[in-house]
Design a protein around this nucleic acid. Structure first.
Lengths: 140, 140
DNA sequence: CTGAATCCGTGTCGATACTG
DNA sequence: CAGTATCGACACGGATTCAG
C-alpha cells in the first residue's frame, strides 16, 4: 500500500474515531441521535422525495406520488409528515376547491440535498459494479 | 439570495438533472439500478455494519452483533449475505472448532466508506437541529 | 377532484430457542 | 460460535373510503 493510500486510511480512521463517540453501541437506537436521524433521512423513500423536491422546487401530493414511483398513499403521507417534523420539507395547504397542497424543501432540506447528491452520484457511478458483483455471486 | 448561493443552486440543479436520467420514475424500483443499489447500501443496518467494519478492520459475527446494537441474528446474517453479494464485504470461514468466521471490508467497501462518512458526519453535525425541529413540531 | 385516513392481506422484523 | 427455525408483532402495499 503506497503512502497516499496510507494517509487516506489514517484520515478515515480519525473520522471514524470521532464518529463513534456519537454512534453508541451500548445504548438502544432511540438514544443515539445519529442513528435515529439517519434512519429517517436515508430511508429509501425519503431520499427520493427529497431529491424530487430539490429538482422541481415544489410538488403536490399526487405529482410527488407519480415521481416517487411505487410508493403508496399511506407511506407517502407518513414520510411527508416525518420529513416535515424533522425540518427537511414544508407543507402549505391552500383552501381551494379542490384543495391544493404544496410541498417544498426548506433551507435545511436544501443543505441536506448537497450531501445526499454526493451519495447518489457515487451510487450512480458504482451501481454497474455492484450489479456485476451480484451477478457473479449469484445470490439473487 | 446572493450570487454565491445562486451559483451553488445552479450547480446542484445540474447534478440533479444528470441524476434523474438514472432515477427513472416510470419504471418499477427493481429496474432502476440506482434505487436498487442505494436501498441496500443506505439501509440503516448496512450502514452500521460497514462503519464498524471500517473501524475494526475485521470482526466476527457475534462481535459485529454486539456493536451493531439492536440487530437480530436473522437480519444480521441476511444483511451480511447481501453486502457480500454486492461486493462491500468479504467473508472468510475457518474450519476450526468452534468455527470462526471473519468479516472484512473489500477495497470496494472501503471506497464506499469515504462517501458514507461524509454523510454520517453531516448527520452528527445536524442531528441536534433535527431533534429540535422534531420537538417543536410535536409529532413524536 | 385532491389529499389523506382506513381496512386488510402479506411480508418483514425482533426475540428466543435451537442446530451443525 | 455462527447461523437457522419458529412465532408473534409490526410495517408495508393496494384498494377503498372519506373529507374539504
Amino acid at each position: 500500500m503506497d503512502t497516499v493510500a496510507e494517509n487516506q486510511k489514517v484520515r478515515i480512521t480519525k473520522k471514524l474515531e470521532k464518529m463513534f463517540g456519537h454512534i453508541d453501541y451500548k445504548n438502544p437506537p432511540e438514544l443515539c441521535p445519529v442513528r435515529d436521524v439517519m434512519s429517517v433521512a436515508s430511508d429509501q423513500w425519503s431520499v427520493l422525495i427529497i431529491l424530487w423536491l430539490a429538482y422541481f422546487e415544489t410538488l403536490r401530493f399526487n405529482k410527488l406520488k407519480k415521481y416517487v414511483y411505487g410508493i403508496s398513499n399511506k407511506v407517502l403521507s407518513q414520510r411527508l409528515k416525518v420529513l416535515e417534523a424533522d425540518g427537511y420539507i414544508s407543507r402549505q395547504a391552500f383552501a381551494e376547491v379542490p384543495i391544493r397542497v404544496e410541498y417544498t424543501l426548506t433551507e435545511f432540506g436544501h443543505s441536506y440535498v448537497e450531501k445526499l447528491l454526493e451519495l447518489t452520484e457515487w451510487m450512480q457511478l458504482n451501481s454497474p459494479k455492484v450489479l456485476a458483483n451480484r451477478e457473479r455471486y449469484g445470490l439473487y
